[in-house]
Design a protein around this nucleic acid. Structure first.
Length: 270
DNA sequence: CGTTTTTGACCCGCGC
DNA sequence: GCGCGGGTCAAAAACG
């Protein structure tokens, strides 16, 4: 899983490699004055490009760090899963595993979202910490939902609940919520589509950025486990804000999705 | 009494 | 075509 390979700046959607082909028009003899003006313009453009490039670099670094966090999380998961193989349960490792799981919860609880945008609809997955004794498959994500179905699925003891946004049909977002099969201490919510209206607490604040989330990821991984619930809800709100700010930039969303999921999305040129 | 939840029926795509 | 699994519908119940 070398997700970093997909971070190659040259494949990066917002890499501005057209910087290399700056205006190189054929000068006509009578246009030397015009050329001067053009040089000026080219300079300012160059400046702008430089700034854009450095910003691009920063973003790429951030992306790399987010990717690192994801890899670490993935490692945790794999470790835990191999420890938890069905035919061979190591009960003597229970508390050790338990501790790791708590770490994992924290790690995951700032909803680690993986979004995949296809030309059809947008699908994102969020993980929410939830008490195992809590039977309700509800997750407060800032939106109001109407449940329209529940099913028991093949390879998961807990049922899956189907929700539609309460503003349906004007807003056609759907979500599925199901307790994770491997680790029942958190819920997996799969969102489909994007809301065409604001949710609770989710204003148009576009300033919530990646580094904030990333800091939470890091701190969450090493931090303590007290006050899990409160921190969880705060993070849910954060997630909403992040999502809304991210979705306003399709390119970035796509890049992030590619980096996080480790898949290369074919970017169709339009 | 309007809205939401529950829950079995129904539908539909997929593999055989 | 048939059965299976997942997603949705809709009538009835529950809720506020």
């Amino acid at each position: 899983m070398e997700y970093s390979s997909s971070l190659d700046p040259n494949t990066n959607p917002f890499d501005l490699h057209f910087a290399t082909k700056l205006p190189k028009r054929e000068p006509s003899d009578s246009a030397s004055a015009k050329l001067l003006v053009k040089d000026e313009k080219a300079n300012t453009l160059q400046d702008e490009l430089n700034r854009a490039n450095s910003e691009n670099k920063k973003l790429t670094e951030k992306l790399a760090r987010v990717s690192e966090s994801y890899n670490a999380l993935h490692k945790y998961l794999e470790e835990f899963q191999s420890r938890n193989s069905p035919e061979n349960e190591h009960f003597q490792n229970q508390h050790l595993t338990r501790k790791r799981k708590q770490d994992l919860d924290e790690f995951v609880s700032s909803p680690t979202t993986e979004s995949t945008s296809s030309d059809k609809s947008t699908v994102s997955i969020a993980y929410y910490p939830a008490d195992k004794s809590d039977l309700s498959l509800t997750v407060k994500d800032g939106y109001q939902w109407r449940k329209y179905g529940q099913k028991i699925t093949k390879d998961n003891p807990s049922p899956r609940a189907y929700f539609r946004c309460s503003f349906s049909p004007s807003c056609s977002v759907k979500k599925k919520v199901q307790r994770s099969a491997e680790d029942p201490s958190f819920l997996v919510a799969t969102y489909e589509g994007t809301h065409n209206h604001p949710g609770l607490n989710v204003g148009g604040s576009r300033t919530v950025k990646l580094d904030l989330v990333q800091d939470h990821l890091v701190q969450g991984g090493l931090g303590k486990v007290e006050g899990k619930k409160e921190r969880g809800t705060v993070r849910e709100v954060l997630m909403q804000q992040m999502a809304s700010s991210l979705t306003s930039d399709p390119n970035f969303t796509a890049a992030l999705a590619a980096a996080i999921s480790g898949r290369l999305v074919e970017q169709s040129r339009t």
